[in-house]
Write a protein that binds this DNA or RNA. Structure first.
Length: 558
RNA sequence: GCGCCAGUAGCUCAGCUGGAUAGAGCAACGGACUUCUAAUCCGUAGGUCGAGCGUUCGAGUCGUUCCUGGCGCGCCA
């Protein structure tokens, strides 16, 4: 609808520009907004103010000239000039009624946009080290990443989700040592507290017990000396594989699926890290100093240069990450989105530098930083640390509060603002939980539709009289809100901010609840009932789309 | 010390590419179920948008300087 109004204004501006002898080529872009105040009409434009500078005339005079042109449009019921020069426009009611019918007619395909024009996007998220179960912080990343992927898909991107398994490096050795220690502990060959720096979560103890039960003591114990690192690789692989299975299960429970699981280790073994470094070397951004190989990331805006190969010959995590992102581009993606914990923000400039050094557009890479989730229980902070084993797992939370509430909760805030997750609050199944509000609206409409069906009524399909009885201000507001959904999705996709869906949904649900309490949908009047059924059914449809985007169920009864 | 993110109602937070009189939920207070689902609704009250300066027709939004909080500044991942 907005685009139609933009065209009206464009046309008017072109006519007036021609009359005043200005070229149509150097006109500013037409901005159309939804005014805050209803009294200002359906749409408003500030174009007169923008033109006043280059046309050397006052905004109200320009506005008046534009108004004369706009008054010729049959679909515009009213055009006024207000304040410093706003052009306020009100559409004919019939336009809104037609729009409602149109939205309903598009069904589940409403707001399926072509904004992305088929560009290929890779959204990489969670990517937690396979050193322990996913905790609540990973849950936030999972929710944001998954919903963002769904959003981009709907707005016209070709999207893949990817989990990068960080199965290389020191941490994996520590994991192996930790499991081996637990195993030896069960055999009575280790006593006391597990050493500092080891992972001490209960899951490793459980794993060790299972290992002992399945494989016995001799199989692996025979060759293990008290002190050396014998068998570490065996334990590492065992632990990592087992944990990864658990991670997949947890994400499955959370409703998150990945198209790809990529292993960091394979980048080393396949020689891709070396190939990436060779590429960088060609562009002369690598140099040696103090025995190490450095990447001159400071030339691309990073605060200092970074080591890619240590003096001991071992390549850094950064080196494999360069290879990883290089490979993403090779796979043909136009846009890379990485979702990281905000504590990794210092890492963004160097990766961006590498991406640029490899000849890619810096704008084709975006890192979304998700702030930490601070955990509390009934208002008391809970410490979280994988190594100490003190944390609440994602699995635990999902099982307690349900997938719907958990996912929704993570999207009630924009990602760069910190989120406090109170376990007591989340676990309590009371009415404070915002997800029920939207779901209830959906169930309520379904209930109305059931009742209508019993009475032989259905949403008005009549192409000539549809919606004509929808004349209440709140009805018009709802239609506008429904119409605005496409713009909302587009802006959410443009800014990569999936939380906007949640807020929109909440507002739409509020409008429905309010409308429901004020008006009866099923009345004596067949025309009115049919039109109102059309209205609420369309609301239901859009709520359904929102909930689907959020990965939250849309119950027909509650 | 440098950098990133945040600072909006008592609390938790929205505020779309700068737009007109700054919003919601919770908490507080007062109302609405013989009615299509009260997991709801309606009303009241609550603000120098951290502070200053600047940019312009116009700033919560942009620039800049401070203040406060979180995080990061490794040849760890």
């Amino acid at each position: 609808m907005k685009k139609r109004v933009v065209r009206f204004v464009e046309k008017a501006v072109a006519v007036v520009a021609a009359a005043r002898g200005f070229k149509s080529s150097d006109l500013p872009e037409i901005g159309i907004e939804l005014p805050r105040e209803k009294a200002f009409g359906d749409f408003s434009s500030n174009i007169a103010m923008q033109l006043s500078g280059c046309w050397k005339d006052n905004p109200r005079a320009i506005g008046a000239a534009l108004k004369d042109e706009l008054d010729k449009e049959a679909d515009l019921a009213r055009v006024t000039i207000a304040g410093p020069g706003f052009i306020n426009m009100t559409l004919e009611l019939s336009c809104w009624h037609r729009r409602l019918q149109e939205i309903m007619g598009q069904g589940a395909d409403f707001a399926r946009l072509d904004y992305g024009r088929g560009r290929r996007v890779l959204v990489e998220f969670v990517s937690a080290n396979p050193t322990g179960p996913l905790h609540i912080g990973h849950g936030r990343g999972a929710a944001v990443g998954d919903v963002l992927a769904r959003l981009l898909k709907r707005t016209g991107f070709a999207v893949d989700r990817e989990y990068y398994v960080n199965d290389a490096g020191n941490q994996m050795m520590v994991l192996g040592r930790s499991l081996r220690w637990r195993y030896l502990e069960l055999l009575g060959r280790r006593q006391g507290e597990i050493p500092d720096g080891y992972y001490r979560g209960d899951y490793l103890l459980e794993m060790a017990k299972e290992l002992l039960a399945n494989q016995g003591a001799e199989l692996v114990a025979a060759n293990i000396d008290e002190e050396d690192e014998t068998g570490i690789e065996f334990f590492t692989k065992l632990a990592a594989d087992d944990i990864l299975v658990g991670i997949r299960d947890d994400l499955d429970l959370f409703g998150v699926e990945f198209e790809h699981w990529t292993s960091e280790k394979e980048f080393f073994t396949s020689g891709r890290v070396d190939a990436a470094l060779a590429d960088l070397k060609k562009t002369e951004v690598l140099y040696e100093e103090e025995g190490a190989v450095w990447f001159a990331s400071s030339r691309f805006g990073d605060e200092k240069d970074r080591v890619v190969v240590r003096a001991n010959g071992v390549k850094t995590y950064f080196a494999s990450d360069i290879a990883y992102h290089r490979e993403k581009y090779e796979r043909g993606y136009d846009l890379l989105i990485d979702i990281w914990g905000a504590d990794h923000h210092g890492y963004v400039p160097r990766l961006k530098a590498a991406i640029e050094a490899l000849g890619n557009e810096p704008e084709s890479f975006a890192a979304i930083l998700v702030q930490l989730v601070s955990l509390s229980r009934g208002g008391t902070p809970v410490a979280m640390s994988t190594r100490s084993g003190e944390f609440v797992t994602l699995e635990e939370v999902v099982k307690e509060v349900g997938k719907d509430a958990a996912r929704y909760f993570f999207l009630t805030r924009r990602s760069d603002s910190q989120l406090e997750f109170d376990l007591e609050l989340a676990k309590s199944r009371n009415n404070d939980n915002p997800v029920y509000y939207a779901q209830y609206a959906h169930a309520r409409i379904c209930s109305i539709l059931r009742k209508a069906k019993e009475e032989g009524l259905k949403p008005n399909p009549d192409k000539t009289s549809f919606g004509a009885s929808l004349i209440l201000p709140e009805e018009l507001d709802i239609i506008k809100k429904l119409d605005n959904f496409t713009a909302l999705l587009e802006s959410a996709a443009r800014t990569l901010e999936p939380h906007r869906i949640t807020y929109y949904l909440d507002e739409l649900a509020a409008q429905l609840h309010s409308y429901y309490n004020r008006n009866k949908v099923i009345t004596e009047d067949l025309q009115v009932s049919g039109d109102r059924l059309l209205l609420v059914d369309t609301i239901r449809q859009v709520i359904n789309i929102c909930l689907t985007l959020l990965g939250v169920s849309a119950p027909e009864k509650m």
